[in-house]
Structure formats: C-alpha cells, structure tokens
C-alpha cells in the first residue's frame, strides 16, 4: 500500500502540477502570439475566419482522395486507438470517480467489461501503429526519439491498466500503483513532447484552414 499511497499522492500531485504548468505555458505561448498580418484581399467567396478554421479542422480529419489508399491503414488505426484511448480514459467508472474527486465533474460510465475490451483493442492498435512506424521506410526515417517516447508513455498506462483490472503479473494494489505511476510519467511528458498535439492540432489545423481558404485553396 505504501507504493500506492506514493503513486496517488505525491507522485500524482507533482505530475499534475508539471502537466498544468507545461500545457498552459505551451498553449498560451502559442495562442498569445501576434497573428500574422493579412496583406491581401481574400479570394471571392472565401468563408469567414471561423468557418475557414472549422473547415481546416474537420477537412483534415480524412486524407485527400489522392493519398487515401496509402494512408488508409494509419488513418483507420489512428482513429481506432484515439477513440479507444478516449473511451478507456473517460468512460471507465473508476476513472470518472477519480476525475470527480479532483474536479467535481461526473458523467455516466460504460460497463467495465466493455471498457476492458476496448482497452485491449486499443493496446493492440497501438502495437500496430508502432510496427507500421518501424516498417514504413519513410515514417522510420522521419521518426525521432520523441515519437518513440510518446508512444511508449501512451502504451504503458493502457497495458498497466489492463493488467490492474485483470490482476496479471502482480497484486492489484501494486498494479494499480504502477498504472498510476505510468500515468504520472505520461502527464509529465505530455506538454513537452508530441503528445501536446492533443491540444495543438486544433490550433494548427485551424490556422492552416484560415490561410488556405483566404487564398481560395481547397482543403
């Protein structure tokens, strides 16, 4: 129980503090930048800035027909593990109770067995994403340590969570402590690595949409 108390006490506090500090630093550091000047008139029929940003965010959620065939697997697999992660994190009853305890917010949960199954699929999907990264020559060439660290720190909480629920490898409280510690590692890394895309993808895609639509380019 000592390890568990450490994990959900000091370790989680420090991890959340680092996460809050780093995420707000990076997010406000980007959002408060001076917008680039617009020195040309928009193309006729260009939508509003808001609509352009929305078009950029939504339009980029599916690859262009030209690249569909070659990017079908990474896109579908990407959706699989992103949705799996969202469900596992946000719709598992113990997670909701934890979030409620620190924020007061609560919502209905999915059946625990269903979330467990989704978490297993998510883990498999994450492994598939890594295999794809390692076997695709271009992807491997452009991959950096950040990519692998981000993958590992996303994968570990999933597998440690599965192990904790199914009591694989050690006692429940030890597995729970390990699960929380892996989440702590994820939180600490999150703002400083590529995982920050969870927040920044909206900003970058929105900005891209605004520029493209201003010039009359298709998204």
């Amino acid at each position: 129980m000592e390890l568990l108390q450490f994990a959900r006490g000091p370790a989680l506090t420090v991890a959340l503090a680092v996460f809050a500090f780093g995420a707000l630093w990076r997010l406000l550091g980007v959002l408060l930048l001076e917008r680039r000047g617009v020195y040309s008139a928009p193309r006729p029929g260009a939508p509003s800035i808001f609509a352009s940003a929305l078009a950029g965010i939504i339009g980029k959620m599916w690859p262009h027909a030209t690249f569909l065939k070659q990017s079908l697997f990474p896109v579908l697999n990407g959706y699989l593990f992103h949705l799996g992660l969202a469900i596992s994190v946000l719709l598992f009853a113990p997670h909701i109770l934890f979030i409620k305890s620190i924020s007061g917010l609560s919502w209905p949960a999915l059946p625990s067995n269903l979330v467990y199954g989704i978490a297993v699929v998510t883990a498999v999907s994450l492994v598939a994403a890594l295999v794809h990264r390692l076997t695709d020559p271009v992807l491997r060439l452009i991959s950096r340590a950040d990519d692998y660290v981000s993958w590992m720190l996303t994968f570990l909480p999933v597998v440690s969570g599965i192990a904790a629920v199914s009591h694989i490898g050690a006692r429940y409280e030890t597995l729970l402590a390990v699960h929380i510690l892996t989440v702590c590692a994820l939180l600490v890394w999150f703002p400083f690595g590529k995982l920050m895309h969870a927040f920044l993808f909206v900003v970058s895609r929105g900005e891209t949409g605004i520029r493209f639509k201003h010039r009359g380019a298709d998204i």
Binding site: Q5, R8, G9, P10, L12, T13, V14, L16, A17, A20, A93, P94, H95, L97, F98, K100, S101, I102
Partner: peptide
C-alpha cells in the same frame, strides 16, 4: 470510493 482517494494537492497544481 477507492478511485477517489487520490491525495492530490490542489494548491500545488
């Protein structure tokens, strides 16, 4: 609840 027993210091966060 067991999952709600995190000893997180809101002040520090």
């Amino acid at each position: 609840p067991l999952a709600a027993q995190a000893g997180v210091s809101g002040e520090l966060v």
